[in-house]
Design a protein around this nucleic acid. Structure first.
Lengths: 228, 228
DNA sequence: ACCTACACGTGATGC
DNA sequence: TGCATCACGTGTAGG
């Protein structure tokens, strides 16, 4: 490839020089003088003419070089993308470009179908229409809400007790915050609550967390499970 | 392009003929005879030699043609796939190859993420911890269950009615099958049921589907929605 | 020897 | 004008 490049460059140079050997004319200005023409006039004319032709040719050569280099960059860009495609596509048997593209098309179609199927059969855009059962293990998680500024989402799973809700209310009141939305599921003596909490100082998240933890585990009298 | 092609073909022919002008040699056999060499030997040798060279050249030309045509087919194959990619990709602003590939990569990654999210979200851990609400639109879907051999999973969303469950029971009885497991959610006057059906003949899936469809839409008296 | 797939440099075309 | 993209034919390597 390197050989190819330099070979064709040499060819181009030969071509250009073969057609317009101005370098030698230009270098032996003496010949023109010997010709007997009015010196300054002629030499100026030929000079500019030759200079122009020469720079045109050089420009052509350098343009060709630029061109081929740009083309090479383009090829590399595209091939790089093929490379990443090859890496992210599983089960790729044939690695050639056409096969990569074919597999990509297949995958995209499949994934699209899968997504639309999954989306419609979880029936909403996403988990907004879904209710999760309480987890068997106790859990507590606080996170900043993406959708609404300044709202913290607290998710907890714990044993249900008669005083649980008021304990949670007190925990939230203790950090001067308000519940603006809640999802509460109780089943089989266990409780899962998701609370959207507003007005919580940034430094108070740890505090709320420990308050909630205490509320969750408060040894209030448990509700009896339904066992039938 | 056609011009380009023929031009380069002409060039190739000129090149070949320029290097080996055997046609004229071969046509003027008299020259060799005049040379004074033993006639039959020389002429035979030269003849075969020239013939071979000539056919070599012709082979070269035809091979080049075959080659460029094959290359063209390859290009067309690849470009066709670019074309289909352009059609299945939404929001494609720039249509050039590199951009198409870039968008494709982005989409594939996104779709993969989406799928894995949706899968783990709805049934990844286990769809057992998740309850889906009934869809607003009526839906009916039958599919073979992956986990259990010979079990068909029927998922349906429809308006709730007093006779719905018995209608469904009858539909299933009509294809001599049994429900081995069920998930039934009723909310806001709508019902979503998932039924695992066993003992369904392979040819009876269509039958079950139409029976269920009738059951879902049976104009029994609707239950009133709770509106508070 | 043949075919396939690729990289290359170049001319053409549109902005 | 320069720049980017493309299609083309060719040289070349691997199967």
């Amino acid at each position: 490839m390197e050989a190819n490049q330099s070979k064709s460059m040499v060819f181009l140079l030969q071509l250009v020089q073969g057609m317009q050997p101005f370098r030698s004319y230009y270098n032996s200005e003496a010949q023109m003088i010997r010709g007997g023409f009015p010196q300054p006039f002629i030499s100026r004319t030929y000079k500019t003419s030759f200079l122009k032709k020469r720079s045109n040719a050089e420009i052509k050569v350098v343009a060709a070089k630029k061109h081929s280099e740009a083309e090479k960059r383009r090829r590399m860009r595209i091939n790089g993308q093929y490379e990443t495609l090859r890496t992210i596509l599983p089960n790729l048997i044939k690695k050639d470009k056409a096969s990569v593209l074919a597999e990509t098309i297949k995958q995209v179609k499949e994934l699209k179908k899968k997504v639309s199927k999954l989306e419609q059969d979880s029936c909403g855009n996403s988990s907004k229409d879904v209710v999760k059962f309480p987890s068997g293990a106790d859990r507590l998680n606080l996170e900043r809400c993406n959708d609404e500024e300044g709202v913290v989402k607290a998710t907890l799973s714990c044993e249900e007790s008669l005083g649980l809700m008021s304990a949670i209310s007190r925990a939230i009141g203790s950090v001067k915050s308000k519940v603006v939305k809640a999802e509460i599921v109780s089943v089989g003596g266990r409780n899962r609550s998701v609370l959207w909490v507003k007005g919580l100082g940034k430094d108070r998240m740890g505090m709320l967390k420990s308050s909630l933890k205490i509320a969750m585990h408060k040894p209030a009298f448990k509700m009896r499970r339904s066992t039938h």
